[in-house]
Simulated assay, not measured.
Amino acid sequence: MARPDSRTLEERIKAEALRLGFTSCAITRADAIPEAAERLRAWLAAGCHGEMGWMEDRAEQRGSPAALWPEVQSVIMLGMSYAPRSDPMALADYPSTGRISVYAQGQDYHDVVKRALKALGRWLAEDSGVALKVFVDTAPVMEKPLAAAAGLGWQGKHSNLVSRTEGSWLFLGSIYTTADLIPDPPARDRCGSCDACQRICPTDAFPAPYRLDARRCISYLTIEHKGPIPEELRPGIGNHVYGCDDCLAVCPWNKFAQVARANKAYLPRAELVAPDLADLLALDDAAFRAVFAGSPIKRIGRNRMVRNAAIAAGNSADPALVPALQRLVDDDDAVVAEAARWALERLATQITATGDQTG
């Protein structure tokens, strides 16, 4: 006869979360972030969300768990590490190579995290009979303030979550439940006087510590923004073609993060770690779908990726990329064609300047 489990429900939840691949789990009350709704309203009113209309459309539900699901009593916050195997900043020294954000170099994290969340949810429902809902990223949930309230970490000056054990490399997921669970203590801000994440941003996307203006953020510009990228921001993009890890990568707390080897879903795909800009510039729709199948990158489509690659090529000072750009000046997509023309003009200036210096 099996011995009864003497652990509390909270202890059992955390043990099961770790078994399923999460690296951290903590609990908070559904009403733990009353100030979040007002901060969100102010951020939206300032226009800092740019073209992300979906944030504005469901702002009320996003600002309060109870507005999304009135029955919720507790929120279980889960973290899954995606700590990189190499320095994400290293490719800055190779301007003809595209830089893809670490989180997008493997399998689509939405699928991986949601799979583990659903498994934990099924276990919890069977174990205790409570009602619950699981969310990862795409739902109107303020994961970072909730994670801070639960004690997983704190929101750093780059506005992302920072963990004492995982640094800035955590995927977040949440389970809303009707269970009245004992909450964990909130995390304490440990950024201190450090402002490394503020200083490293190439496009000055932080008007103040803890505040992000998405309209200037490279992640927003290369992923969410659909039209031409403002010309004054293009040089700062460097060779980023999908997202940006700069503010995350310089966080001193990363030294405590262990490389995420346990979860095979985050083994980076070789073709996504350091893609050649020339290969990205040559993509058509079919090739794009083939290369990025199973990746979160597939959501932006071929045109946005080639636009990003063209801007990176314009920043590269590499004359070998001129033929690939010339083939795009009459591209069917007007945004791609404009980016290619801009890149060619910028390359011409860079190559001329280099010749003057060496001649």
Rank of each mutant, 00 (worst) to 15 (best):
Pro275Arg: 04
Ala340Lys: 02
Val273Ala: 07
Thr354Ala: 12
Arg3Trp: 15
Glu38Pro: 03
Pro84Trp: 09
Ala187Gly: 00
Ile218Pro: 14
Ala42Phe: 09
Ile218Gly: 13
Ala317Pro: 04
Leu68Gln: 00
Lys144Thr: 00
Pro4Ala: 14
Val291Gln: 08
Thr358Glu: 14
Gln105Asn: 10
Asp180Arg: 07
Ala270Val: 06
Gly301Leu: 08
Lys14Trp: 15
Gly227Phe: 14
Asp184Lys: 02
Glu71Tyr: 13
Ala309Arg: 03
Leu328Met: 07
Phe288Gly: 08
Trp253Met: 06
Pro70Tyr: 01
Lys298Phe: 14
Ser81Arg: 09
Gly173Tyr: 03
Val75Arg: 01
Asn303Cys: 14
Pro319Lys: 04
Ala66Trp: 06
Glu231Phe: 10
Ser174Trp: 01
Asp31Tyr: 01
Arg261Asn: 14
Thr28Ile: 01
Pro228His: 14
Tyr109Asn: 12
Ala265Gln: 11
Leu120Val: 05
Asp127Leu: 11
Ala339Thr: 02
Ala262Cys: 14
Met77Pro: 02
Ala59Leu: 06
Gln73Asn: 14
Ala324Gln: 08
Ala2Trp: 07
Ser64Ile: 03
Ile300Asp: 08
Asp111Thr: 13
Glu271Lys: 09
Ala179Ser: 15
Tyr220Pro: 14
Cys197Gly: 00
Pro70Lys: 05
Ala139Ser: 09
Asp285Phe: 09
Asp332Glu: 13
Ala125Leu: 10
Gly121Asp: 10
Leu280His: 01
Asn254Pro: 06
Leu212Lys: 09
Leu325Arg: 02
Ala260Glu: 14
Asp332Tyr: 10
Ser24Ile: 04
Cys247Ala: 13
Tyr242Arg: 15
His158Ser: 04
Ala343Ile: 03
Arg7Asn: 15
Ala278Glu: 13
Leu170Tyr: 05
Tyr210Phe: 10
Cys217Thr: 12
Ile223Gly: 11
Val273Pro: 03
Arg188Cys: 03
Pro275Cys: 03
Cys251Asn: 11
Trp342Ile: 12
Ala260Met: 06
Ala147Met: 02
Ala42Thr: 13
Gly21Val: 07
Cys197Phe: 01
Glu16Tyr: 07
Val141Glu: 02
Gly151Lys: 03
Ala187Thr: 01
Ser168His: 15
Arg216Met: 09
Ala293Val: 05
Lys118Met: 09
Leu212Asn: 06
Arg12Met: 12
Arg269Tyr: 10
Asn315Phe: 05
Asp246Leu: 15
Ile218Arg: 12
Arg41Lys: 13
Pro209Ala: 04
Asp189Gln: 01
Leu124Gln: 08
Phe256Leu: 12
Leu152Gly: 00
Pro275Asp: 05
Asp5Glu: 09
Cys244Trp: 04
Ser159Pro: 01
Gly236Thr: 10
Tyr176Glu: 05
Cys197Glu: 02
Tyr176Arg: 04
Asp108Gln: 10
Met55Asp: 04
Thr222Phe: 12
Asp284Ser: 06
Pro145Ala: 01
Gly314Glu: 00
Phe288His: 11
Gly243Asp: 15
Thr222Val: 13
Glu338Tyr: 13
Ala46Ile: 04
Tyr176Asp: 01
Glu71Ser: 08
Asp356His: 15
Glu11Arg: 13
Trp154Tyr: 02
Arg269Ser: 07
Lys114Ser: 12
Leu277Asp: 04
